[in-house]
Design a protein around this nucleic acid. Sequence first.
DNA 1: AAATCTAGCAACCGCCTAATA
DNA 2: GTATTAGGCGGTTGCTAGATT
Length: 391
Amino acid sequence: MGRHSCYKQKLRKGLWSPEEDEKLLRHITKFGHGCWSSIPKQAGLQRCGKSCRLRWINYLRPDLKRGTFSQEEENLIIELHSVLGNRWSQIAAQLPGRTDNEIKNLWNSCLKKKLRQRGIDPVTHKPLSEAENGEDGNKVQPKSDESSRKTDNNGSSKDIFESTIGANSQACDLVCHFQMQQLNYAPAANARLSSTHWFTETSKAFDINTELSSSSMMSTLLPPLTSAFVSDNPPIAGTYGSRYWGTSASANNNSNNNSNSTSTIAEPQGNNNSIFDNNSFSWGLMETQAEETKWSEYLNNPLLMAAALQNQTPQSLYNLEIKTEPYLFTTTSSSSNSMLAQIQDHHQQQQQQQQVVPLQNSDICGKDMQRVTAAFGQGRTQDFRLGGTNL
DNA sequence: AAATCTAGCAACCGCCTAATA
DNA sequence: GTATTAGGCGGTTGCTAGATT
């Protein structure tokens, strides 16, 4: 079988620089991504297509929801994991704006630990004592090994579900009923973003694409756009939480920066830590100041975001085929140059305006800190304390 | 103040399947 | 039918920064 050799070629590896991000973003903004393997050349990047794809999916995509995971999201991940196991992409499909990588990291670094602290085995989702005994032959064990990946490549979880749960209907009834009750709110929010299956309370998988395609179904099932699930933890779209290549050593040269970066923080505003209220920026879609004030609404709502990007109403998006890629932005009147300039200018302004307050010990909750890096701002970083995790 | 530990995150690696030549 | 390529996925690694000793 052909093996990717991109990592073995003389291509750049490691962290992405702001310049590389800019090139990639600019290119995809203009042309969409189309064939990933040709993008590096077209965009003037010394990266392999795979790396570009990853960067886009995990970081540059405009519909990404950044910031800490809300309680609802964490709970949903746990529930989904109990059914799907380590099928991160399928789990991510149910969490709009979250990437599989992000969820995987959260699981490995945080949720697993929390479950253990609760006395729950993160693999079996059973009480640890019971899991350790490992006696029963009737366990609903999420498949997390290699074999579990041998499913259809369309993101369908039907067969998985049937094999893991359907084959064990007795356990399934218990598990599913519980889970479906808790998950009932989720499908609608996710239906528009994922091409996957959802489950009914009878444990039967149904194809969300087909079954939700009728407008009546959609109107019945779709929650208000401001559902807690989506809005509890506002996305920091448009801001970037990434280490850039060279960031730590050379990039912290902005005026706000000092050698002890932990000594100051940007004060979270309100319960929702509306960081993006201060740090949102336009993607070149909204030209006026008045329009910019609406931005947080867009950030709160991936649908609105997508609609804005595609010059479509949210309503029309409901009826779109779910697949959101390839992203082909409408450039409207803004060239990508002005868009990027706008991003930079906006961040500079925000940084100047930002109120910096001394860090209180009470603000720190372990490592519940979200590092938000201003994109395209010469790699400078800015720390924000977000609310502690709640599990 | 320095050394060490720990957590979080971005990215790499290798495997898989599907599509195509 | 076989080889190759591309895209996708999950596991893992390595780096950074904060916390602790």
